[in-house]
Amino acid sequence: MRTQGGILFANIGAGLALGFVVTSIGFGDFAELNRMFTFQDLRMFLAFAGAVAIIVAVFAIAGVRRTPTRIHAGVVPGAALFGVGWAISGGCPAIPIIQVGSGYLPALVSIAGIVVGIRLCRRVTTRLRIDTGSCGV
């Protein structure tokens, strides 16, 4: 499965499943998202936290190796900007895609913004030599 063909197959399967699951939970619905972030409804928060708890347990039991990581300079400012963007537009990098898939055509504007933001980030960090690290992707 670690061949490029296997990874392509894994990406297609994971993408289909992620799109289906995230849409079915309601992450594409701005009202649901705002209710999660303002703690009016913990359903989506518990789905996210519950998933993390399951992943921690499964990887611990399976004894899967961990890759060393470090906290780089871009983590806190980058995450803060992401948090603001997520709260006002209702989208993380996957969510505008499923919003379009659900029929919300203005989410194409969010996608255009993400495209500009990602290209801008690479240009700025390359020019200023800012370390952006990686979550291992």
Partner: peptide
């Protein structure tokens, strides 16, 4: 939506990952 998208795109790459 556009400003939010720019912040999401810029922020996630600066932070090295997303949700």
């Amino acid at each position: 939506l556009f400003v939010g998208g720019v912040l999401v795109g810029f922020g996630t790459r600066l932070a090295g990952g997303c949700s």
